[in-house]
Amino acid sequence: MLLSPTLDSIIDNRRRRARRRSLVIGVLAVLLVAMFALTLLLGQSFTPPEDVIRVLLGEQVAGASFTVGQLRLPRAVLSILAGLSFGLGGVAFQIMLRNPLASPDIIGISSGASAAAVFAIVVLSLKGPLVSVIAVAAGLGVALLVYALSFRNGVAGMRLILVGIGVSAMLDSFIAYVLSRAPAWTLQEAMRWLTGSVNGAQLSDALPLVLAVVAFGGLLASRARDLDALKLGDDTAAALGVGVVRTRVMVIVAAVGMIASATAVAGPIAFVAFLSGPIAARIMENNGSLLIPSALIGAMLVLAGDYCGQFLLPSRYPVGVVTGALGAPYLIFLIVRANRTANSP
């Protein structure tokens, strides 16, 4: 076959895929904005759009300033930021270890951050950014521990996942223990550390999370192409000029940083990190990097989950209960499928 028609069709196909990618990401972004707008407009009561806009511009509006400015806006902003962080951190791990089960919330990193945050808040009576810092440090520590425990002539994906599940279970029982010793009036707070919630969100909580998303998200974006090459396997990636170990370290730091920061503010919102990547993969159909789509999906999951938990179910549930109910069946499905493929000849 001749080169020039091939070249033309290669270029055509690439452009078509690029256009499709922009289109899909654009639609996801519009959906997210629409959901954000809806959560500001409609809660227990409806607030007219012009009132919402005036509140956002900083005006005092009777009847709207409190519900929109103090309740709905912080909640929505925090949901989006936490969702972005969980989505990015989760998919980064899944791509790096080439396994959807390798999500930070399955392999104990969220639990590590959560346990440290609970300990810092309940036992050490700490608050604010310091809690985030401790949570990030603990998340990294757990990542290191799981990695070290599963190291035997290199790290095999499945061994790391199993070790992570074990570590995760231990940390969860530690959280339950600390909470059982906590004074009764922290029960509301306690719920957050078991399932994850954006109840009582304040805009001041958003600042550390914004910083984390910018810093760690930037780091992750700078490694996005190398991370994508890791999908081909470590050897092929290395042959393509990717510094495999360096990329891995940077991706782990970035992903754990985001997951832990979000966990420190909103608790371990169940399965968002785990679900975002596979959903994004289904939507994108292998068209380019999954980082941005997963971030958008994560934000939508938290936003929609929280909205469902507040208004669409017979009783009020924290967002983690809703996302947990979504994620658990998928987890079972993956494990069943992994077993089947492992057993089939």
Binding site: R98, L232, G233, D235, T236, A238, A239, N286
Partner: peptide, 10 residues
Amino acid sequence: GLLPQSPVAP
């Protein structure tokens, strides 16, 4: 360039 033994495509 290197083509490893039986590489796996994503």
